[in-house]
Each structure stands twice: as C-alpha cells, then as structure tokens.
C-alpha cells in the first residue's frame, strides 16, 4: 500500500477535539482573500493548489495551523511558477519583522 499522505488523517487515532472558537485575525482574512484573488485571476488552479497542500513539509504540517499552511502553499506555488523570488520574500519578511510594524506595507 502506498504510504499515507501527511494530510490523510481520516480514521487515525486522535485525542480531544478542541471546542474553542477561533477568530481569524485580519492578516489571515487578507491572506485568504489574496489566495482567492490569485485563483480568480487564473494564476493557479484547484489541482495545483491541492498538490501543494498534499506535498507540504511533514514537520511543518504537524506544527502549523491551517492559515499558515495556506500561506506557505500559496508562496510555494508562486515560487514554482517563477512569479516570486524566495530570497527576496525572506529578506522582506525579515525587514518587516525587524521594523516590527504593520505600517508602510500597502
């Protein structure tokens, strides 16, 4: 039998289901909107995205939440398509973290 995909959780043993509500924070809403927008523009499609979700790094999958995985999957696809330079993205991410402010980001 083929090895189970990291995303393929159905039927596996698991503990308590968290019942607290999760309220998306603003960047998560914006990120989902950005994802939908790129989709609407035909920059990527369902099958490409699904492949990206399923091929995500196993360690990241275990330790990340849904919104972070969506962000990283979208970035991986854009890099793969040559639309984004990962070094440029990382440099800008670090700059924003160092500045520690949301200002001056459109």
């Amino acid at each position: 039998m083929a090895e189970r995909l990291i995303t393929d959780l159905g039927g596996l043993p698991a503990g308590a289901i968290p019942r607290e509500e999760y309220h998306m924070v603003f960047w998560e809403k914006q990120m989902i909107a950005t994802f939908n927008l790129l989709w609407d523009k035909g920059i990527f499609n369902l099958d490409e995205f699904r492949r990206m979700v399923e091929s995500i790094d196993a360690e990241l999958y275990k330790t990340s939440n849904f919104y972070r995985r969506r962000l990283d999957g979208m970035i991986d696809l854009l890099v793969e398509k040559g639309l984004l330079d990962p070094a440029e993205l990382e440099a800008r991410t670090q700059r924003i973290l160092q500045e520690g402010t949301r200002d001056h980001v459109p």
């Binding site: 924070v25 960047w27 914006q30 990120m31 950005t34 790129l38 919104y67 972070r68 962000l71 979208m74 970035i75 854009l78 984004l84 440029e88 993205l89 990382e90 800008r92 991410t93 670090q94 700059r95 924003i96 973290l97 520690g100 402010t101 949301r102 980001v105 459109p106």
Partner: peptide, 16 residues
C-alpha cells in the same frame, strides 16, 4: 507582536 506568519504574508502582499 508580528508573528513570522503575518510578516511573511505582509512581505508577500507588498511584492505581489
């Protein structure tokens, strides 16, 4: 505080 995830999104958005 900004998390790495949020900063990464903000960087992505500005580049896009």
């Amino acid at each position: 505080a900004l998390t790495y995830g949020e900063a990464r999104y903000l960087a992505l958005k500005s580049l896009l």
